[in-house]
Design a protein around this nucleic acid. Sequence first.
DNA 1: AGGGTTTATGCGTTTTTGTGCGGGAATTTA
DNA 2: TAAATTCCCGCACAAAAACGCATAAACCCT
Lengths: 249, 249
Amino acid sequence: MLKKERQAYILHQVNLHNKVLSSLLCSEINVSEDTIRRDLQELAEEGKVIKVHGGALSQSFNEVHFPSNAVYSQNQKKKIAQKAIGLISNGMFILTSGGTTILEMARSLPPQLKATFISGSIPAILEYMHHPNIEVILIGDKISKNSKITVGSEAIAKIRQMKADICFLGTNAIDIKQGVTDNDWDVVQLKKAMIESCKKVVCLAIAEKVNTVQPIQVCGLNDINTLITELDPGNPVLQPYVEAGIEVL
Amino acid sequence: MLKKERQAYILHQVNLHNKVLSSLLCSEINVSEDTIRRDLQELAEEGKVIKVHGGALSQSFNEVHFPSNAVYSQNQKKKIAQKAIGLISNGMFILTSGGTTILEMARSLPPQLKATFISGSIPAILEYMHHPNIEVILIGDKISKNSKITVGSEAIAKIRQMKADICFLGTNAIDIKQGVTDNDWDVVQLKKAMIESCKKVVCLAIAEKVNTVQPIQVCGLNDINTLITELDPGNPVLQPYVEAGIEVL
DNA sequence: AGGGTTTATGCGTTTTTGTGCGGGAATTTA
DNA sequence: TAAATTCCCGCACAAAAACGCATAAACCCT
């Protein structure tokens, strides 16, 4: 087997599987490990692959898995925010959780919108405060420093005595069987109370979070009314949710 | 699984769910906890995640809103802050209003101090949140956008049901005859409630504000226990207050 | 055709890298 | 304050890489 030929084969394998192991390749092509290593090195110098200890990775690895922009998946979140804003009309009372998707929504609210936003999330409140026409109600209680949200029985009691028009949940994980799940106990308590205190529950989730599960359950699928992702509502990934009776946008 | 591949997976998880636990990851990927820890450490050094005890947090989630340091009369306020901090001891429950003097105090709190701070001022709360050992209780209600503080009957009711050890008031104007005065009706209501709900009332005021008057009265001189300015307590300007029975620092 | 040169490959040996383990320190939690 | 986690440090060990060298095939020019 010619050198060029071999390298073409290796490159093909890398692009196919996103990674190759030198140990596997050498037994596959029947050359010494040194040769494979030299090939990978050349390919790496030409920028065709990324050489790592033990083998090589596809170039696409850098772009896809290591997002360089500050806010992760910001474009997707902007898309979600736009869809969510479509559900808001003047005069509404709106409960929101925290999370970067909610923040993106807060930033994208049209300036002429007049509505009342209620939240215990400090970052979200800071965003709402910048808007000229919206009223902001802050849920008070002890502050959880890592989630930057007020948590505790006071906060929950306060939420319980409300009846908002709509509730937006930044969703950490959603799954057909497990429903909505999260990883912070305090946050889950808040979200549960929010769900009970509004007429309509809307989950905001980037597609990557769909069909993933976290340790603590927030609610079952039947408790939510609407699911918003950056995907087209017709996307096959979302069909199970449509069939479960959820409005998918 | 290659090291880089594993790190990509971890990073992906962090960005998806805002946090990861090393214990969970290691059973998920089937490597030792040490390896996960080393990975997290490397990712942290590259600035991709924030390493914390037990796992790591997403970088984007932690975007800190650093309030501007350019504060009017900062040196005087630092001096006042230092004197005020002298009145605080471990385990205290402390009510505070808003205002830049209070902010300066919040920034100067010694890191090892363990106390509970209660406030409805958003900027103050943001400062308190940065401290490692203090508990933060946020008074909830409608947010007044220009004073960045929660105002309303809910907030007042909440304050009334407390009994704090000490209360620090950022003071806009203080005068021998008119006592403490201010210019925002909502803020005044809050301050009145705070004064009633604590054992000791401390006014923080830069010297410029001493012997000035604002339209709305907060309280008479006899309601306050301590007055802190950047001046020496023996300064003639302050003597009338000493004579009125106020502790001047 | 044949000698010199370049290129490609394989084989030991030495270094480097990646990972797990144990024990003690530090930190969190009850 | 005590118990349980988690972290940190050094070590061991295996896998992989780097290096030098040997060999041989391919190439190139009289």
